[in-house]
Every structure is written in C-alpha cells, then in structure tokens.
Design a protein around this nucleic acid. Structure first.
Lengths: 192, 192
DNA sequence: TGTACATCAGTGAACGCGCGTTCACTGATGTAC
DNA sequence: TGTACATCAGTGAACGCGCGTTCACTGATGTAC
C-alpha cells in the first residue's frame, strides 16, 4: 500500500457525508457529481474510483442520513422521552436545516421515483428506524408501538416538508404546532 | 380575432392540466418543457407564447393540483364524512396514482426549494385548502377544527409520500394503515 | 357564395450550459535497498 | 539516512445528451368585400 490503508475509505466516507447534506438541501436531482466532489475538496473525475455511478451514492447517502437521524431521535427520546422527540423533530431548527435533518421530510417523494435497488436500501434502513423508535413509543403492546412509530414519524415528516414549502412564517409555525399538539395528546392517551 | 376567442385559453388550460399530471408523476425537475408540450400535442417553441418561463407554469400547475385535490376531498367528505376522507386519501389507489393525487405528497419537498413567488402562490392556495377542510373536521371550536385540518392533511401527505418510497408492499400498506387507524381514532375522540 | 387578405397560434432550428461518465495522465506517497 | 522506484488516489479534458430559452418562420383560420 502506497497510501495509509484507510486513506481511500476515509475519503469515501467524507464524500458520502457531505453528499448526504447536499442532497438533503438541494434534492437528489439538484446537485451534480462535479459539485458533490468540489464540496469534498476533490475533482469530479475521481468520483468513479469510489462509486459505480451517482445512483449508488444516492443509495448510500440516504441510508447514512436515516442512520444519522435515528441517532438524533434516540438521543432526544433518552433525554426527554416522547415529548422531547416531538419538540426536536418539529422545531424551527429542524425545518430550517434540512442538511442535518430527516431524509423522509426532504427526500421521500423523490425516492419514490428512483430505481428499485435504491428503494430497497432505503426500505431496509427505514425498517430499522421504525423498529428502534417503536421500542420507545408510549403504548402497551408491541403491535401498537410499531403502528405508532410509523404514524408518528411519517406524520412529522409530512408536517416538516409542508412547513418548509410554505412561505408565510406564521402558517409554517402553525403547521408544526398542530402536529406537535395532536401527537403529544396521542402520547398521553391510553392506547387500545 | 382570427381564432375562436377562447382557443388560446383552452390550449393554455390543457397545458396546465397535463403538465400538472407530469409534474406529480416525475417531479418538477423530472420533466422538461419539450416533453410537457409534447404531452399536450404541441411543440416546445410555442410554450413561451403561453408562459413567461417554466417556473410560472410550475406555480400554476401546483395551484391547479391543490384545487383538484380539494374538490376530491370535499366530495369524499360529503359522501361519507371524515372516515371517507381517510379511506380515499390513504388508499392504494392514491398511492399508486400520483398524477391525480395530492401535490403535498408528491411535491412539497421540492416546492420548498423553489423561488419565493412560487411558494407564495402555493401558500395562498394551501390556506384555502386548510380553511375548506377545517369546516368538515369533527371538533368543537373553530380553532380546533383549523388545527385538526392542518394535522390531518400533512400527516396523510407524509404517509403517502413514504408509502410510495418503500419498495416492500407489506410495509407500504402498513404505513397507510397505521395513519388511517390513528386518524380515525382522533376523529372519534372528544376534542379538548 | 367565392376569393384575397391579415392575423397569430404554433413550428422547429439554433444557442449556451450543465449534466453523468470515460480515460489517459500526474504526482504525492510508502517501500526497498 | 538517502535515493530510486512502484503504486494508485486524484486530475482535468473530452464525450454525447437534454435542458430552458429565443426567434424567424409557416400555415390554418376568421374577416372583408
């Protein structure tokens, strides 16, 4: 080995992470390979030494983003339980910073139009997210917790996506607030 | 007037409607002007006799789609009330036909990245949708109905967007089902 | 009713540009002696 | 320790293509007489 054995792997990881931020900010079709490499301090030609094509990178960045988000959500849950999860996900901060945010809110609609292998990777990782969240849902049975995790996450994602699209700050805030209120109530109710 | 006085207006409307279907299917960046015109049986050069630019068309198609969706939702509400709305919006049929579906589920994330005038038009029309839906929400006060309309619509949009992105049919169905179950329960509860 | 004309909705070639991808190369680095 | 060499991560010119937009034009249509 001419370079340190982990040199290439480190570069690759750096590309995946910065590309994942670019994609969440500008959309999967909104950033080109040349720009993604530039952000990582490289030139476009080297891209294909790391990835088969742009689609492969999209697949990896989406999985990375889901893992990153799951970690943030679990941290909130451990710190302040279910209400803290809502507070964090439905915050102005999350709305205004898609680059560090949930890929469901930023990319789910686009993901629906991508090739099957990409959707497969996304689906696998999403299942992991649902399962991990389910353990922390305030409901009695495992089935209820699982259903609740799905509902809570997809409804929050919808609220953040629409709140980002709305140009009126007051309406945007009220969209986040409505979801916060209703989900908080859901967390307090006896599940049956 | 050499042509019938409404000839151009008819063509324009045809372009807006078919473009709105194309955008909901392939995304705002996923279809080009040439293709949009072809779908309407025209050539790309004529586009600029009808619209200032592609962005103007995007703005109009989004408003059109929101109006179309609102009509469909009001029809469901009048036919079968709140449960019928959930049934219709969270159906396989809606998931599998974005071209006739809700622009929130298909385009909200992309809309967030578009210029302010486009977001303004979207925001105005979305407010109309929220207000109209609010009248039909099962809650006591106007404030509660308004908040509920926002929550119900954005959470359904999130569920459909994610259900479309998931490649596993069972998981996809269960996402829709979870939202249906929880929102149905919300409709039955005393609001306070 | 039939013809000549003016209108203008729609046509299609052309533009500059950025896209994803390929490939011959360069030059910084670790190794061998 | 110092030099010659092999490696290979990264470079950048080049490709074909589709994009949004412009513009000189064409030809179907309604009007005038």
């Amino acid at each position: 080995m001419r370079y340190k054995s982990d040199h290439k792997e480190t570069t690759r990881r750096k590309i995946v992470e910065s590309a994942s931020r670019e994609f969440r900010t500008h959309g999967l079709e909104g950033v080109g390979v040349a720009n993604l490499m530039k952000v990582s301090g490289l030139t476009h030609g080297g891209f294909y030494a790391h990835f088969a094509d742009k689609e492969t990178l999209i697949s990896e960045t989406t999985v990375f983003a889901l893992q990153e988000r799951l970690a943030a959500m679990l941290e909130a849950l451990e710190l302040g339980g279910f209400p803290a999860l809502l507070e964090m996900y439905l915050s102005q901060r999350h709305r205004d910073h898609p680059e560090f945010g949930c890929p469901l809110a930023a990319l789910a609609a686009e993901m629906a139009r991508h090739p099957e292998p990409t959707k497969d990777a996304f689906t696998m990782q999403l299942r992991t997210v649902f399962d991990a969240l389910a353990e922390h849902m305030p409901a009695k049975t495992a089935k209820q917790r699982s259903s609740m995790a799905s509902f809570v996450l997809t409804s929050m994602a919808g609220a953040v996506a629409v709140a980002r699209a709305v140009s009126d700050e007051v309406l945007s805030q009220s969209i986040l607030e409505s979801t916060r209120t209703h989900l908080l109530r859901l967390g307090k109710e006896p599940q049956g």
